[in-house]
Every structure is written in C-alpha cells, then in structure tokens.
Computed example of a mutant assay.
Amino acid sequence: MFDIFRDVRQMNKRQLANQVLNFLLMVCTALMVWRSLNLITWCDSPIVVVLSGSMEPLVYRGDLLFLTNYDTPVRVGDIVVFNVADKEIPIVHRVIKIHEGKNGEVKLLTKGDNNRVHDRPLYASGQDWLTKKDLIGRVRAWFPYAGIFTILLNDFPKAKYLLLLIMGLTSLLKREE
C-alpha cells in the first residue's frame, strides 16, 4: 500500500502532469459520449438500469435499457420510462391506455407487467394520467443484466467510492513504459 506513495514521489513533474491529463481525458471522453447520446436520442437519460422486478418476465432487475424520445406518438404496448413528481427514481412500465383530450393533449396510463393494477397509486397526488412532460423516453432496446454492476454499487455506496478511488489512483499512478 505504501509503495504507491513512494511511486508518486519518484515521478517527475512531467510524468505526473501526463498522468493527470490522461485521467482528465478519460473523464472528458465519457462526458462527450454521454452528451452525444443525448443529442442522437433526444433523451436526457438515454441509458437506464432497471431497479425493480415490476416488468418481469420481459425486463429484469439489472437490465440495461436504451431509450429514445423522438416525437413519434406513444402507442399502447410501448414500454416507457417516466418520472413522477416527488420521486427521484424513474419508473419503467408499459402503456396500457391512451386518452386524447379535446385540445389534442395525449395522456397515458401505465402498468408494470408484473403488477396487478395500473400505476395511478404511483403517480403524484391528484394525478390520474401521465403527460409528455413526465416521460423520459421510450425503450428501444435492452441488454439483459448488463447493469447489474450499477445495482451493486447503489446497494453498497461505500463500494462505489472505493471503486472511484481505485480507478483514480490507478489512472494517476500507472506508468507508461
């Protein structure tokens, strides 16, 4: 463990600056990829991980979902991801009913495939339908269990910080031959 600190002291300033710049380049690249996905999909959160079993047996906890938010109309049977006021975690459920108002506003009712009843009890107080502003996106594809690592990091927050520390130290201390 203390060999790491000895290695840092032995680095010259140029090597250390190079390692710091490489680390910053990795972070900036990840941010650019994320922002590019936002632009391509028209979605603020183009990739989400399923955190519950409410959509089983089609979508399982830990599946990685890819979303889009184009202006094509949502249809009954589409799987959507939406936010509810006063709740931090988005919900992944299927549209079971669509209601078009006289003014052309489209309202949606959702339900998890593994749930017995519709989602009205999950919506904000006094809200009976979802609107376009509640939607994050529509599920276009998913990879089974590809997000299980994210769930593990959320279940064990100290592991998340430890992993970030290890990644940061590794990228800063790795010597290029």
Rank of each mutant, 00 (worst) to 15 (best):
L39E: 08
K87R: 09
I40G: 10
T150I: 14
R9Y: 01
Y60P: 04
V59F: 14
T131H: 03
V117Y: 04
I148F: 10
V139E: 01
I98D: 11
P90H: 04
P90K: 04
E177D: 13
A17L: 15
R116D: 15
K97L: 08
I47A: 06
R116G: 11
M32D: 09
E177Y: 06
K132G: 10
L130R: 09
K174E: 12
T150M: 12
L152N: 13
G77E: 09
R61V: 05
A146T: 00
F23A: 03
D119T: 04
T29V: 14
P121V: 00
P144R: 07
F143G: 14
L153R: 06
N69G: 11
L130H: 12
T29D: 08
I91Y: 03
D78K: 08
G53Y: 04
W34I: 12
W42C: 12
D128Y: 00
V74L: 15
M26Y: 06
M167C: 12
S54T: 04
L172T: 05
G112A: 05
Q15W: 05
D44H: 13
R116L: 13
E88L: 15
F156V: 13
Q19N: 10
E88R: 11
K87C: 04
L162P: 05
C43G: 02
L109E: 08
T68I: 10
Y123E: 00
L16F: 13
T150N: 13
V8A: 12
K111V: 03
V139I: 03
G77I: 03
R35F: 11
E177V: 09
M11D: 05
M167D: 10
W142M: 14
G126R: 00
N22R: 12
M32W: 08
I136V: 10
Y70S: 10
L24K: 06
V80C: 04
L130W: 10
V27Y: 07
R175P: 11
V117I: 07
P90W: 02
K132R: 15
L122I: 08
N18D: 12
W34S: 09
Q15S: 09
Q10P: 03
Q15K: 12
N115H: 10
